[in-house]
C-alpha cells in the first residue's frame, strides 16, 4: 500500500475508539454536561470487555459489558453533577480516579496474562465495497467494530436531531427552563444523555482492548478520552464532524509507525504530541466560532467554574 492509503486506513482503525467516546460525549454535552470521566468510562469498558470476552469466549458479550461498565461510571458522574450539582470538571476527574482504582483492583490478574482472544474481531473485507480503488482499502478492510462505528454515527445523528427524545435532550442543553415549564424533568434527561454517552465510551474502550490491542494494560486509554472531549468541541457538537475528526486523530497517531516502517527517521515523541498540538491549533483557529455555537447550558458550565 502507498503511504497515504496506509496512514488513512490505520487512522480509521486507530481513531475508532476516540470516535465512539466522542460520539458519547457529544450526546452528554448536547444535554449541557461535560464529562472528563469519559476517560474513566473507556478504561472500565476496556477491562470489562476484555475480562468477559476472555472468560466467556464471546467478544460481542464483551462489547456489551464494556458498554455497560462505561455507562455505570458515567451514571456516577451524572448523579454527582446533575442531582448533587457538583463541579463538572472535579466530578469528571473523580470518576477517572474511580475507574483507575477499580480497574487496577479487578484487572490485576489480567495484566499481561497472555490470554489472547482467538480471532475475536478478525478483519473482514466488505464485499464489493472493498474492491473500490483507494476508498475500499481505507474504509472497508477492517473488523466488525469499526463498521459498528460507521453505523453509530448516523444513528447518533438521527437520535439527536430527528427523534423526540433527541429534541428533549438538546433542549436540556439549550433552554432547560423551557422543559421545566412543559413538565419535563431536566435532571432525568441529562442523566439519560450522560449515561448513554458513557455506554458509547465504554464501547470505545472495549474496541481498544479486544478489537485493537488484544490485551489489557493498566491505564491503557492514555488520554484518548480527553482527546475525545476536545474533539467534540472542535467538531462543534456534530456527530458527522466527530467522525472526521476522530479519523484525523487516528491518522496522527498512526503516522509515526507508518513512517518508521518505511525506514524514515522520525521523532516518536513529536508524533505522540501531535494529536494534542493539532487539537490546540484547530481550537485556536475556530475557537470563537465554536464558543458562540456551543449549547447554551454548556456555556454556563464553562463560564462559571465555581459551582459546587
Amino acid at each position: 500500500m502507498s503511504l497515504p492509503v496506509d496512514v488513512l486506513a490505520a487512522g480509521v482503525a486507530g481513531g475508532t475508539s476516540i470516535m465512539f467516546a466522542a460520539l458519547g460525549e457529544t450526546i452528554g454535552e448536547r444535554a449541557g454536561v461535560i464529562n472528563l470521566g469519559i476517560e474513566g468510562s473507556m478504561l472500565a469498558g476496556a477491562l470489562g470487555a476484555y475480562v468477559v470476552a476472555v472468560e466467556t469466549g464471546s467478544p460481542w458479550t464483551g462489547v456489551l459489558v464494556g458498554g455497560i461498565a462505561g455507562a455505570a461510571l458515567a451514571a456516577v458522574h451524572a448523579f454527582l453533577v446533575v442531582w448533587r450539582r457538583a463541579n463538572q470538571m472535579a466530578s469528571g476527574l473523580t470518576v477517572l480516579f474511580l475507574a483507575l482504582g477499580l480497574t487496577a483492583l479487578f484487572g490485576v490478574k489480567y495484566v499481561g496474562s497472555g490470554k489472547k482472544l482467538d480471532h475475536a474481531f478478525d478483519v473482514w473485507n466488505v464485499p464489493v465495497l472493498h474492491d473500490l480503488p483507494v476508498v475500499g482499502q481505507i474504509l472497508f478492510e477492517h473488523n466488525a467494530l469499526v463498521y459498528l462505528g460507521f453505523v453509530t454515527v448516523p444513528v447518533v445523528w438521527f437520535a439527536l436531531f430527528k427523534t423526540r427524545i433527541g429534541l428533549l435532550v438538546r433542549t436540556a442543553g439549550e433552554r432547560a427552563e423551557t422543559l421545566t415549564v412543559h413538565g419535563y424533568s431536566v435532571p432525568w434527561l441529562r442523566t439519560l444523555a450522560v449515561t448513554c454517552g458513557g455506554f458509547l465510551a465504554g464501547i470505545g474502550g472495549a474496541y481498544l482492548s479486544i478489537g485493537y490491542a488484544n490485551a489489557w494494560r493498566e491505564n491503557m486509554i492514555q488520554g484518548k478520552g480527553f482527546i475525545a472531549v476536545a474533539l467534540v468541541i472542535f467538531a462543534v457538537w456534530s456527530p458527522v464532524r466527530v467522525m472526521a475528526g476522530a479519523w484525523l486523530f487516528g491518522c496522527a497517531l498512526s503516522l509515526g509507525s507508518a513512517l518508521q516502517a518505511r525506514g524514515y527517521e522520525v521523532n516518536q515523541f513529536l508524533l505522540q504530541a501531535l494529536p494534542f498540538v493539532l487539537t490546540l491549533v484547530v481550537l485556536t483557529v475556530i475557537g470563537r466560532r465554536t464558543l458562540s455555537s456551543s449549547p447554551a447550558e454548556l456555556k454556563k458550565v464553562f463560564e462559571n467554574a465555581e459551582t459546587g
Partner: peptide, 10 residues
C-alpha cells in the same frame, strides 16, 4: 494492588 487506593480517594 496499591493503585486500588484511588478507589478510596475517589
Amino acid at each position: 494492588p496499591g493503585y486500588a487506593i484511588y478507589v478510596l480517594t475517589a
